[in-house]
Amino acid sequence: MTVTDGAGGPDGATALAAHFDATIAHDQRIEPRDWMPDGYRATLVRQIAQHAHSEIIGMQPEGEWITKAPSLRRKAILFAKVQDEAGHGLYLYSAAETLGIDRSELTERLLAGRQKYSSIFNYPTLSFADVGVIGWFVDGAAICNQVPLCRSSYGPYARSMVRICKEESFHQRQGYELLLTMMRGTEQQRAQVQDAVDRWWWPSLMMFGPPDDDSPNSAQSMAWKIKRHSNDELRQRFVDMTVPQAERLGVTLPDPELRWNEERGHHDFGTPDFSELMRVIKGDGPCNAQRMERRTKAHQDGAWVREAAAAHAAKNRGEEGSAA
């Protein structure tokens, strides 16, 4: 379809910018074919792509346990969860495409190392308790991050987040239930849960990103209402939410500074090692190479399927010559 942008010279451009600003100020949504500043579009493409890549790479740490799950029930649950992660990635690629970029281009950028995914998926899943702790911590942290994104100023992104948040709730609950079950088991199972909690707690806190005074893109994203809360606010919310759940479960969160602060009405807690976060983001985490290698292999191994489906479709349309 043809789009007339109506931008007749500099006056037209100013009017478009004013209309965009007013839409944001009135808490209305920006929709795909609206005029938007280049920076707004670029920020959204970067953020939505990174989010989509995280969902797709996030299939790997838990996917490893599908064949090793201890019962058919747990296997079916884990299958459904990993399938959801694929679905979340696709909802998000679909939202990114409304900004005028093709998802195959985004995949190429990921494989070339030009776009990132969440640092959390570069940690290994060493025992089945990790599956539970990922659901509880990682999906819990994702819910803290994502619920406010349901009101993000960009319509397609916000709508994707609504679908995703509904499904994340299942992810978090299956994880916590798995841990409750293990805590009712043997001494060894309880030790496995505590070990997984010890390993995943700090990387989970890092999922919220660098502290506010060291987060260069945050102010602009909040002005554009792409983001609704700062990294530190969301981190605090996650800690406050998780502490009573840890008590109920009977595990200890590995932070000697963690205590209730009556005055603030929040928990005080220690500072994550943000230099570790930076190292992992730059590629030096325990599993970065493995995750990218696996993703690249899956993409290459799937090439013949994509080509065969395209050839089959062309043949059915009677374009046999064009299938080559």
Partner: peptide, 15 residues
């Protein structure tokens, strides 16, 4: 929806 149907590397159209 987008303004046109981009084709990915495998030539699959957008629906």
């Amino acid at each position: 929806m987008s303004t046109e149907a981009p084709r990915g590397s495998a030539g699959w159209p957008l629906y």
